[in-house]
Simulated assay, not measured.
Amino acid sequence: MQQMAIDRAKRNLAKALAMGTLSPSLLAGCVTNSTAAKSNVELGCMNTNQVLIGGAIRRQGQFEAVVYSQLGQFQHHIPLPARGHGVAIAPSKHHAVMFARRPGSYAMVFDYRDGEEKALIPAENNRHFYGHGVYSNDGRWLYATQGERATSRGIIGVYDAENSYKKVAEFSGFGVGPHEIIIMSDGRLVVGVGGVHTQGRTPINLATMKPSLSYLSGNGELLDQVMLPDHHKSIRHLAHDGEQTVLCGQQYRGEPDDYVPLVAMHRTGESLVELGGEPEQWARFNHYVASIAATDSHILATSPRGNCYGIWDKSSLDLLEINVLPDASGVVVKNDQLYVSSGVGKVVKINADLTKNAFVSGIQWDNHWSAIT
């Protein structure tokens, strides 16, 4: 019944957006006048350097990338060939890339200042995109998680951002079914390897899956690989805290009545350490964690399937709270504040002291967010 209500709410939101009856109010008009500015500051208005890019559902069967301006208003709606998933933002030019949801057929590069498409990267006939990618720290290379269609063999496609995003290399040898890839400050690539061989989106090797958190050099050399004791925890989504801490979220592929930790933390040279929570608390996440972010003091993970997000203390790893948010999706961190999106248009701003403000964005946010820093 709860899922039916959520689906109905999403349909109603899509209808309102299509008819123009729901005005976008998220962070809008932050500098109209002193009184309005004061009001918006109290509501948590974004600073001028906080620009967000995320996938969205425009209406049934139509998808887009949405760019928010420095004032938190709509700047660009960029139509997508199919449903998008993750976003990579270039550090050295005004480019962003939207990756198709797995098994994806495209990656679209666009200029987030004017919304102009710069390149549409097709997946080769025997490849598909897994929905995520990241630029090298100097912006020269774009790394994208890919799979071989027949086997789900994991591949990192390497594209030359200075040469029309031509594919120049592939890295492999780290496992099956990679999903998210991030980059550390020292240039190491970190890959969440799900370990699942799929046909379309149907898993076919759950008894033998081998998920891992894999570290690669910028040249594709496998530097380290760590695993959780339970091989049914498919490692999928990643984040780091700007230093040396990597966080990974899992999709549990084991017994449906088992409720196990779904977020783990890793530091180089150490084992994966799982975050706290009782089985009945982890049950709220419905076996799936999507976006993750970390501040100096807290870790946040969303669960669209569980219609909630959790917040943990970063030092003790204790679960502090679980909050209801229908179709909880993306999360970004900026200035020690967290912003969480949802597929029913709601956005929650979370301050360092965990006080919260909620907004209606007028956008059906879909999957992940990225912030232009």
Rank of each mutant, 00 (worst) to 15 (best):
I372L: 11
V360E: 14
T21R: 12
R236W: 07
G200V: 11
I182K: 07
E321M: 09
G195H: 01
H240N: 14
T145N: 13
R11F: 10
P79K: 15
E116Y: 01
S92H: 14
V134K: 00
L26E: 07
L247P: 02
M108N: 00
S212N: 00
L222M: 09
Y288I: 01
R305A: 07
Y252C: 01
K314H: 12
Y135E: 08
R236G: 04
S34I: 13
K38V: 10
I372G: 02
A123H: 00
Y106G: 09
V333H: 12
Q199R: 13
G194K: 03
P256K: 13
Q70S: 13
T48D: 15
I53H: 04
T268D: 03
A5Q: 04
R83G: 13
H232F: 07
L13P: 03
G254D: 12
G362L: 12
V360Y: 08
P178D: 06
K118A: 13
A293P: 08
A301T: 05
I156V: 08
N351T: 04
E221M: 10
Y215N: 10
M209C: 12
V331T: 07
V134M: 01
K356E: 09
M46W: 08
H95S: 01
K15M: 14
K166C: 11
K93R: 02
P103M: 05
N47E: 11
L43W: 15
A371C: 13
I78W: 11
Y130V: 05
S212D: 00
K349S: 06
G242Y: 11
I156L: 00
A358M: 10
Y112D: 02
V246G: 01
Q50R: 09
T151G: 09
R11W: 03
Y339P: 01
K166Q: 12
L120C: 06
D186I: 05
F99E: 04
G115N: 05
G61F: 05
A28L: 15
I121Y: 04
G194A: 05
N47K: 15
G175Y: 07
H231P: 14
D318H: 15
D160E: 13
V158L: 05
T202P: 03
N47A: 13
A290Y: 02
R59A: 13
L354K: 02
H197V: 14
F285L: 06
N12E: 12
C45L: 11
H179K: 08
D318C: 03
